[in-house]
Simulated scan of single mutants.
Amino acid sequence: MALVVAGVVVLDCAEPEKLAAFYRELLDAEETDATANRVEIRGADGMRMAFRRDVMATPPSWPRPENSLQAHLDFHVEDLDAAERKVVGLGGRPLDTKDAQGPFEERGYADPAGHSFTLRCARPTAPKQG
């Protein structure tokens, strides 16, 4: 057994119930634990996230340099346009929607509390056979 194992990604925010609801809907997750100051969810793929109350939490300012990137989450999607509609419909906002060069296409967003995350669609990079 490993000495240290991965636990849960925790985001600080002023309103953990609201932020948990955003990610619960986005990830088709279920709430697994809730207290007055923390809500934890588990995604359909097993990913665990928690949201801890911090009334002094300051949202990251990315892409501006001051206080820019405190943490960053990547989510893999099949359809970027459909995923973007869901993010915006749940209260998230686009940060950087330029098409990325290379084998991945990705778009940056902020959740309702201002934490940045990326939706990434992997593209096959192997040459076609035959």
Score class of each variant (00 low, 15 high):
L69G: 04
D74M: 03
F51D: 04
T97Q: 09
D99Q: 08
T58G: 01
V87M: 02
A122G: 12
S61H: 11
A83T: 14
D96P: 04
Q129I: 08
E40P: 04
G114Y: 08
L19S: 12
I41G: 10
A34K: 15
Y109N: 08
L69M: 13
P60L: 07
P16D: 10
A71C: 14
R93T: 14
G43L: 00
K128V: 11
G91F: 03
R53N: 03
P63E: 03
A71H: 12
R24T: 15
R85W: 00
P59Y: 04
F117E: 06
V55E: 11
A36E: 14
G108L: 05
F117G: 06
T58S: 11
E78N: 13
L26M: 12
A122C: 05
A110W: 05
S68N: 03
G102E: 08
E17W: 01
H72S: 03
V88G: 04
P65Y: 04
E25L: 02
G91M: 07
L19E: 10
Y23M: 06
R64C: 04
G130P: 01
D33C: 03
D111R: 10
D74I: 02
L69Y: 00
P65F: 06
G91D: 09
G46E: 07
F75H: 10
R93S: 11
A113Q: 02
M56D: 14
P59V: 04
P112H: 11
R93M: 07
K18D: 13
R38L: 15
L90H: 13
N67H: 12
E66I: 02
R53W: 02
P112G: 09
V39A: 09
A126S: 13
D111V: 09
F22N: 13
E17I: 04
E31R: 15
A34Y: 03
R64A: 12
H72N: 06
A34S: 15
T125Q: 14
L69P: 00
L27T: 07
V39I: 14
P59M: 06
G92F: 07
R64W: 01
V87L: 06
D81R: 02
C121E: 14
G102I: 05
L69W: 00
M47S: 12
R123G: 09
Y23S: 12
E30V: 15
Y23W: 15
A71Q: 13
D54S: 06
V39Q: 13
L95V: 12
G130H: 05
R38P: 02
A14C: 05
R52D: 01
Q70N: 09
A126T: 12
A57L: 02
